[in-house]
Design a protein around this nucleic acid. Structure first.
Lengths: 178, 178
DNA sequence: CCCGTTATTTACCGTAACGCGAAAAAGTCA
DNA sequence: TGACTTTTTCGCGTTACGGTAAATAACGGG
């Protein structure tokens, strides 16, 4: 693809867990070209300026496979909300509650959104190709994640609404089985 | 605290979702001091070099409260494993399966670790102070997260082990209720 | 023919957040 | 003296970004 096409289709592919504007895409393409991983070939167009379509070189494909065989690094959570919770007594509760409610809505929205995509792409819940299996699994962890965080937001809201000490064993047991 | 003390205690406090080595801590302390948010006072010690203990200024405390009232930004997942899944057909399956198994073990370990901390800090599952409530909630989302990812790893392993198309409605239903 | 619009790429500026390797300074103990 | 701990600092680099703008190239309307 060309940089322009990548920029346009980025959001609808891996855009849910990775953001990149067009500048960064062009930058990364330049880096890859400099390293010999990709090659750009001009494609003449009528009615529009020509575009520079990049394709993997043999070297690039090898590097890709090599990268694909590397162990992944489990990412950190890195949510500033968690830092706030770590020092909960240093902050006002009300804005935090508002934030938690906004977050709850946000994660519910994302969950619904992923669900729509899932129903659209995999109405039977079945992936027929290897590529589809990967995309389906990506959707699955997205769904799980949003549902998990949304549930946690509810728990957090009820915990900070009551005076401390009212988060009881009962809640724990419900959570540990849920 | 002093930079040295912060560096030592960082891992056992918010260290699970935020990493910082001592250099970065000193750097951030310098920034905060330059902005007037903290003040350093030398504390004489016997048997060791003196230390520079930093304390919040009134300005710093105000800035902290202001920061605490800001809406949080929901972080992206940003797991390179997900990128691999998005282009699953471009990679070899075996290293990916190995990676998934390592990840499964990793997240199970973290889950067990959080559970131990939870049982140690909150043997009754009850937080008695506001500060404890925050820490408990942090542990809770950590537990939820590790359990969720571990379950997803199992699902992913079974999905990539079978030929495509065998990830059935049955699995979906189990997940959507689980 | 100028002008505005879309498509496509590039240049140049900056920032935050980090890692690495080293070393300085101050003290202890063998 | 030399090795080791404690505490702080310096100077180098990188990755991964964001913003603003401009440079092309082609189209169509007035």
């Amino acid at each position: 693809m060309s940089g322009y096409e990548l920029a346009k289709t980025f959001d609808s592919s891996i855009g849910f867990f990775w953001k990149a504007d067009h500048q960064q895409i062009y930058r990364e393409l330049s880096k890859l070209r400099d390293r010999g991983h990709i090659e750009g070939h001009e494609v003449v167009q009528s009615g529009k300026p020509n575009k520079l379509v990049y394709t993997l070189t043999a070297d690039g494909r090898a590097a890709l496979r090599h990268w694909g065989a590397r162990p992944s690094t489990p990412p950190m959570i890195k949510d500033d909300l968690l830092v706030r919770l770590c020092a909960l007594d240093s902050f006002d509760v009300e804005p935090l509650r508002a934030d938690l409610m906004a977050r709850l809505e946000h994660h519910r929205d994302r969950f619904a959104h992923y669900e729509r995509i899932l129903n659209k792409l995999f109405p039977d819940g079945v992936a027929t190709t290897v590529a589809d299996t990967g995309k389906l699994l990506g959707l699955r962890i997205g769904l799980r994640h949003e549902r998990m965080v949304a549930e946690w937001c509810e728990e957090a809201l009820s915990a900070i609404s009551k005076p401390p000490g009212v988060l009881l064993l009962e809640d724990c047991r419900r959570e540990n089985n849920g």
